[in-house]
Design a protein around this nucleic acid. Structure first.
Length: 733
DNA sequence: CCTGGGATATTTTTT
DNA sequence: ATATCCCAGG
């Protein structure tokens, strides 16, 4: 073992080594971007295990994504071969969900509690607005959701919220809805994301014996990305670390980018106050980026007033200058990004997986996606509409949730009449009324439908049929594997048949998504620690965007600046550097918001190892229509000019063919090409075309000109349709 | 009870 | 441009 430890420490620089070997007592590690923060955490875990200081199950480590947790565990496995791996490594949310599953019954939750995502939350709030008869039109459910979430993160419960409510909105709207919302979560045996942090605090407060047990277990606690913890998370850490005080947090105030969701950089200051004897280590050597990239990133972030001045250094070379690209439009911006990628691949022999294209808002991904697709470059978008939030996936998940957790009336209502089986809204509310009167869950009321008044015999039959279906799968749980059960259920419910009959491309995508879901269930039950269906349902609720990212595929990665935190790429593009977009318009008003945008830029820029490109577009289309004209971002001006070079028109790489500009006016209906490929591809009668929704078809006629041109297409799958050419998005097939 | 057309909001970032 | 919501008519 001793040799292993020496070799282990040999991989570290001096401050890293100190942070790793200082195992006893509170430790604060201030770690700049690319300074080996994750390395310190991983080696610290390995060190604790290898020296016998801690047993693997006595270590609790919080990471920012589940993927990071997985990688950390694998790394530990190679550093300490043969040792048992620590099981308590994960995001705050997944770790505490696990604790709640074990202990939640103390708070009146079943261990199979559901986890509600944002859509579920909003539906719940909308139901509340209706049930409480609040003036629905004037209420923005999102604002209510935000207010409730904010309150929860500050550990303010409905009763206290009611007492403290000041404004009309707080007193008359949020307060009653907050009460309703919490009550409904409880009766549905469900929690939202905030509850996963707040309920454990309640649990530990109310049941000191439970707290003591976990305090005893977790003798060594490690936290990554500490600058982005919120009040609830900090409270949890304090509770758990109180006894042994072996708490090691790693963070960088310059990379704090979640203030808007309650994260508090002040937690770094709090830490020094709450743990006065804490040791502080600073990691200032950057191993990731060139001097130029670091210099450019620093020249922006140093404009922040609220930060501790520090400067990262590197012994890497100067590297290439940061390339700045100005374009007229968002389309051109996307096109230039693609061209630059092509040039880097061609001239510098890079692979597609070397590139990340970052943006401030998810909406920007579409046009980039289009440009990449047109150029035939494989890409993957991280985030955006998440896989597990797609309608068809959520529908199947809702069935599975109900099978596992019949008290969960919310999912039940989602599927009770999908696919249509003649159980409409009126019937459901009658049964709900009955359920309320009898104080039983909705599903139990459905089982006793014969006692419910005023329901047509035919409808009763449908309900009995549905109840039978669910109960059948409830009992099959013990006989079939999760994947077998889900597959049989998808088949019996008729998802596959329904989508096949639809026959459109979209339906095929949906079908693929369902198959992918079934595959995910199968692979979960062969890998996971908790292979049950319940385990899977909990698991998918807690996935982060980055978790489902395949970082080995040789494709260009597209993601938001937020998602990019903690990652690195040889070449990074930061796009949309315009006033109003990055920094976002409303942030320019508030100094603290503006500083957060600057930190976001800093995070983005320091993802780059070798080359950084910054792009902006003078005009950008918003929701398909109006053009927005912008000036370049102030961040571009803040960069010292020595670090940048302007890439003008003539630095454009040679192109295979220039894409035609969309002509301002089209005189004849014939040369109306919607396709963005190298050659104009007119749409004309007799042409085979492809439509994203309707699939392949043949053009029968083209009517009218210019903006108003219409095409009549006979689609193979759905028959004849008349489409406005401008919007039809037809491609020659 | 179900369908489809029209109106409407959507774009800040996420566990 | 697209997703979702709402309502009238079948």
């Amino acid at each position: 073992m001793r040799i292993d430890i020496q070799r282990l420490l040999a991989d570290l620089n001096e401050p890293q080594r100190q942070a790793v070997t200082h195992t006893e007592g509170p430790v604060l590690v201030l770690a700049g971007a690319g300074s080996g923060k994750t390395r310190v955490l991983t080696y610290r875990i390995a060190y604790l295990i290898a020296t016998g200081t801690a047993l693997p199950w006595q270590i609790l480590a919080m990471t920012f994504t589940n993927k990071a947790a997985q990688e950390m565990r694998q790394r530990v496995a190679t550093l300490v071969p043969g040792a048992e791996l620590p099981q308590w490594v994960g995001t705050f949310h997944s770790v505490f969900a696990r604790i709640l599953r074990r202990e939640g019954d103390r708070l009146g939750y079943d261990r199979n509690f559901a986890i509600y995502d944002e859509q579920d939350q909003l539906t719940l709030i909308k139901n509340g607005i209706r049930e409480l008869r609040l003036q629905g039109d004037e209420i923005n459910p999102r604002a209510v959701r935000g207010a409730i979430s904010k309150a929860k993160n500050q550990l303010i419960f409905p009763e206290e919220y009611e007492r403290k409510a000041e404004t009309f909105f707080e007193r008359e709207i949020v307060s009653p809805l907050y009460h309703y919302y919490q009550r409904m979560l409880k009766t549905n045996n469900a929690m939202d994301f905030d509850d996963l942090l707040v309920q454990p605090i309640v649990l530990f407060d109310r049941f000191p014996d439970v707290l003591t047990r976990y305090q005893e277990q977790f003798r060594y606690i490690l936290v990554d990305e500490y600058q982005d913890t919120n009040r609830a998370q900090y409270t949890l850490l304090k509770q758990l670390a109180q006894r042994y005080r072996n708490l090691c947090v790693v963070g960088d105030d310059d990379q704090s980018i979640y203030r808007w969701r309650g994260a508090d950089v002040g937690n770094i200051l709090n830490f020094q106050q709450d743990f006065k004897d804490c040791a502080i280590y600073r990691l200032e050597q950057n191993y990731r980026s060139t001097k130029t990239i670091l210099g450019a990133a620093h020249s922006v972030v140093r404009n922040n007033v609220n930060r501790w001045e520090k400067r990262l250094w590197t012994d890497r070379g100067e590297g290439e200058k940061v390339g700045v690209v100005a374009t007229d439009s968002d389309r051109e911006e996307a096109f230039r990004v693609v061209s630059l990628i092509e040039r880097e691949v061609y001239q510098n022999k890079r692979s597609f997986k070397d590139f990340a294209v970052l943006y401030r808002t998810n909406a920007q991904s579409r046009i980039l996606e289009q440009a990449l697709r047109d150029a035939g470059i494989a890409y993957e978008i991280v985030g955006g509409v998440r896989f597990f939030e797609r309608k068809e996936v959520k529908d199947v998940l809702a069935y599975l949730r109900v099978v596992c957790n019949p008290a969960e009336s919310f999912s039940l209502k989602r599927i009770i009449n999908f696919p249509l089986r003649g159980i409409g809204a009126t019937t459901v509310s009658k049964v709900e009324e009955f359920a309320r009167a009898k104080q039983i869950p909705l599903f139990s009321a459905l089982e006793r439908v014969d006692e419910v008044p005023a329901i047509a015999a035919r409808t009763k039959e449908s309900i009995k049929h549905f109840v039978k279906l669910i109960n059948k799968y409830r009992s099959l749980r013990s006989e079939l594997s999760p994947a077998e059960l889900a597959t049989a259920l998808v088949e019996e419910v008729g998802f596959r048949r329904m989508l096949k009959e639809e026959g459109t491309d979209e339906a095929r995508d949906r079908l693929n998504n369902i198959d992918e879901l079934l595959y995910a269930i199968a692979s979960h039950s062969s890998n996971a620690e908790d292979p049950s269906l319940e385990g899977f349902l909990q698991h998918v609720s807690l996935l982060t965007d980055v978790d489902s990212w395949d970082d080995r595929a040789n494709v260009v990665t597209l993601m938001t600046l937020h998602s990019a935190k903690g990652l690195e790429f040889p070449v990074v593009f930061i796009t949309g550097l315009e006033e109003g977009l990055f920094p976002l318009a409303n942030s320019a008003m508030d100094q603290r918001d503006l500083e957060e945008e600057r930190r976001l830029f800093y995070v983005g820029a320091t993802r780059a190892k070798e080359k950084l490109y910054l792009t902006w577009a003078a005009s950008r289309r918003r929701w398909g229509m109006e053009e927005r004209v912008s000036r370049p971002s102030r961040f571009l001006m803040e960069i010292d000019s020595e670090y940048i070079e302007l890439l003008g028109e003539r630095d454009r790489p040679p192109r295979r063919a220039r894409r035609p500009e969309r002509p301002a006016e089209r005189r004849s209906p014939m040369p109306a090409w919607e396709d963005e490929s190298q050659e104009p591809n007119p749409i004309y009668a007799g042409r085979r075309v492809h439509h994203p929704k309707f699939g392949h078809g043949t053009v029968i006629a083209v009517d009218g000109a210019d903006e108003r041109a219409r095409v009549v297409v006979l689609f193979d799958a759905v028959g004849e349709k008349t489409l406005v050419l401008k919007y039809a998005n037809l491609r020659p097939a």
